[in-house]
């Protein structure tokens, strides 16, 4: 009984301290929409948002988790010339669908099948146009594209998520399949998290379900062998 009083007294003390702390200490701000980063980073973001800056100062920062190194393996294997091999990079075009045949009468899903099965498209019921805008759809790394990581958070994400920051925009909307090999090279953090959890799940169940079954069997049929 004394133990109970001691425990409940301790808990009441802790709760009242916590409440007092919340009420009396300065209000903890959740960043108020700006990132908890260094002065330099915040200055860079300020420069970018006003767009009043030198070109060399606003190179997009390496925020994306996606691995987009333009390796020699990614180049066209049979190019016309050494410079032509890098021409097929379509990430910097003003119209990313330039040269696609019969583009006008097609729907997005016909070519971009993988991008139709994720949380934003399936659960939030958002159509492609609502984020990607009207024609011509610029490439994602084109300097003036609304989808450029510099300004994606303000031009696209903030339409629904008030207060989103550039960090928020680094969330990958069209995730690759977490267990696939393309995730391994493209989004390794997701890939290894997926496989870790899968191995954990499979391993735990593979060990404990047989253990449990054996326990039951032994208890059922082993009565005479006991003692």
């Amino acid at each position: 009984m004394r133990n109970m009083i001691y425990i409940s007294r301790t808990i009441v003390c802790i709760i009242s301290f916590a409440l007092l702390a919340i009420l009396l200490l300065p209000a903890l701000s959740l960043g108020q929409g700006e990132e908890v980063t260094s002065y330099i980073n915040r200055y860079k973001q300020y420069e970018v948002s006003t767009n009043y800056s030198e070109r060399y100062e606003v190179r997009p920062s390496q925020r994306s988790p996606l691995v987009r190194k333009f390796r020699s393996i990614d180049r066209e294997p049979f190019a016309y010339s050494s410079t032509a091999s890098s021409v097929r990079n379509r990430n910097l075009l003003a119209d990313s669908h330039r040269g696609v045949k019969f583009y006008d009468n097609r729907r997005c899903e016909e070519c971009h099948v993988n991008e139709t099965h994720d949380i934003h498209t399936v659960r939030a019921n958002i159509t492609c146009r609502q984020c990607h805008g009207l024609e011509p759809i610029a490439s994602i790394n084109h300097y003036y594209s609304p989808m450029n990581p510099i300004r994606r958070h303000a031009y696209v994400c903030a339409k629904c998520h008030e207060g989103s920051s550039a960090s928020f925009a680094s969330y990958v909307i069209h995730e690759p399949a977490a267990g696939s090999s393309s995730a391994r090279t493209g989004f390794p953090a997701l890939y290894y998290s997926y496989w870790f959890m899968l191995v954990l799940l499979a391993g735990t169940l593979t060990f404990f379900i047989p253990h449990t079954i054996l326990m039951g069997l032994r208890e059922m049929f082993g009565r005479k062998k006991d003692k």
Binding site: V36, G163, S167, F168, V172, E175, L190, Y194
Partner: peptide, 20 residues
């Protein structure tokens, strides 16, 4: 609180958070 969370950790950790 995804917007507030992305102020403290990179936003792409939300992809991992959903999965985990």
């Amino acid at each position: 609180y995804p917007v507030a969370a992305s102020n403290y950790v990179p936003g792409w950790t939300l992809n991992i958070a959903v999965l985990l």
